[in-house]
Design a protein around this nucleic acid. Structure first.
Length: 222
DNA sequence: ACCCAGCAGGACATAGCAGC
DNA sequence: GCTGCTATGTCCTGCTGGGT
């Protein structure tokens, strides 16, 4: 039986929800919110609509709990419903729409996934890290629709090929290819940015410059 | 040490589309 | 209608890590 990081087994939570235990619903939502939001957002490219899609997915799931027979697969089942909900919305809007550029506040806990995000200490480093993250998120946003959803599920959410394929209703081989090509596209996009940024590496102005100057002047005075 | 499942990545096939 | 290009899907092979 699978015990998620949060403690209780998914099967126990599913049973509790079937009994109408409000606390179980909340535990399940808090456990899966981030993953479902990322999946929905990767498909819709719109944070507000992704949030609505996740809420609708939960409602749909919670009113059809009897359809989830195996509690150990509750997470996958929810992910599939969220992906379907997002895809449905995408079809409804006709896949033609302009999106706001970039991402705003990152969802809770994402920093823990990538230690680099927290390694910065000085304002310059914090700015550089924020800029790097913005570039990565922009590059992911710029991926073709199908590639982006697969990349987020596989690389960001660490879902298996089978899970991802089931969620999106595509063959596992297609998941592999899309992930491979999404990585290639991201590498290319990021290397283009790097080409522009490398000349500015090891920036020297500011605190360090002042420190060296002050140190030399002090020793000259001695 | 061996076996096996899952995965990455390359090669090839196919579909869709624009330009002529 | 034909051709060439691009995007996408499928198949295959080799690698890796976990289990026995």
């Amino acid at each position: 039986m699978r015990i998620a990081a949060g403690g209780e087994a998914e099967a126990d939570l599913l049973d509790a929800m079937k009994r109408g235990d409000g606390r179980a619903f909340e535990t399940v939502m808090r456990r899966h919110n981030r993953r479902l939001f990322r999946i929905a957002r990767s498909i819709l490219k719109d944070e507000g609509e992704a949030e609505e899609a996740v809420q609708d997915a939960y409602l749909r799931a919670f009113t059809h709990l009897d359809q989830c027979a195996d509690g150990d697969r509750l997470g996958g089942w929810l992910a599939r419903i969220a992906a379907n909900e997002a895809l449905m919305r995408l079809r409804k809007r006709g896949r033609v729409r302009l999106f706001a550029d970039g991402l705003e506040a990152e969802e809770e806990g994402a920093a823990a996934v990538v230690p680099l995000w927290t390694a910065a200490s000085t304002p310059e480093e914090l700015f550089a890290v924020a800029e790097l993250r913005r570039l990565v998120e922009q590059a992911i946003d710029d991926l073709p629709d199908g590639f982006r959803a697969v990349f987020v599920m596989r690389a960001v959410e660490q879902m298996s090929v089978q899970e991802t394929a089931a969620c999106l209703g595509i063959p596992p081989e297609t998941v592999k290819t899309r992930l491979h090509r999404a990585r290639a596209l991201l590498q290319k996009a990021l290397s283009d940015h790097l080409d522009r940024l490398v000349p500015t590496a090891f920036g020297f102005a500011g605190e360090r410059c002042d420190r060296i100057v002050a140190g030399v002047l002090a020793r000259l005075r001695d």
